[in-house]
């Protein structure tokens, strides 16, 4: 077992974990944070996307021990006091989801993208979400939601 100390959604957590424990399983099974989904489990679909020190990563391909000493943000950590984060609100407003399975990962990838490029073009949004697959929406409304959130955040 290896001792880890991770700041998750602003809260310091520590645990003894097996080194082979994946970050997504630490979040879901140990901490009960189930927004990040396991879709493909092969670094392709992006459903497991969380932020690690503010950068989007696929938590099915990060070991919990690699996150020790770092900050993790999940979708649960976005909304303060029941208020939706602007990206979440924009997904709802612009119908950026249907079944919702990809949504937490899409939202985290979008939040990470807007931190890097606050005013993205449509092409930059599409490229920025290249690591996230959606089987339902056809992407159009997701892209519209992210563009709307970008103008909202900086308005």
């Amino acid at each position: 077992m290896t001792h880890i100390e991770v700041t998750v959604n602003g809260e310091k957590r520590s645990a003894e974990v097996e080194p082979r424990l994946l970050l997504v399983h630490y979040l879901r099974d140990h901490l009960g944070l189930r927004a990040a989904n396991v879709g493909c489990d092969t670094t392709s679909c992006g459903a497991c996307t969380v932020l690690l020190d503010g950068k989007s990563v696929k938590s099915c391909t990060v070991l919990a021990v690699q996150a020790s000493g770092h900050e993790v943000t999940t979708t649960e950590g976005l909304s303060a006091d029941g208020e939706l984060h602007p990206v979440q609100a924009a997904f709802r407003q612009h119908h950026g989801l249907q079944c919702g399975f990809c949504t937490p990962g899409m939202v985290m990838a979008a939040v990470g993208l807007l931190a890097e490029i606050p005013h993205p073009t449509e092409a930059q949004v599409r490229e920025g979400l290249e690591g996230n697959l959606c089987r339902c929406t056809g992407y159009h409304n997701i892209v519209q939601a992210v563009l709307a959130a970008a103008s909202e955040v900086t308005a």
Partner: peptide, 9 residues
């Protein structure tokens, strides 16, 4: 390379 998440790691 890959996608943004892969490039971050």
């Amino acid at each position: 390379v890959g996608d943004p998440q892969i490039r971050h790691r």
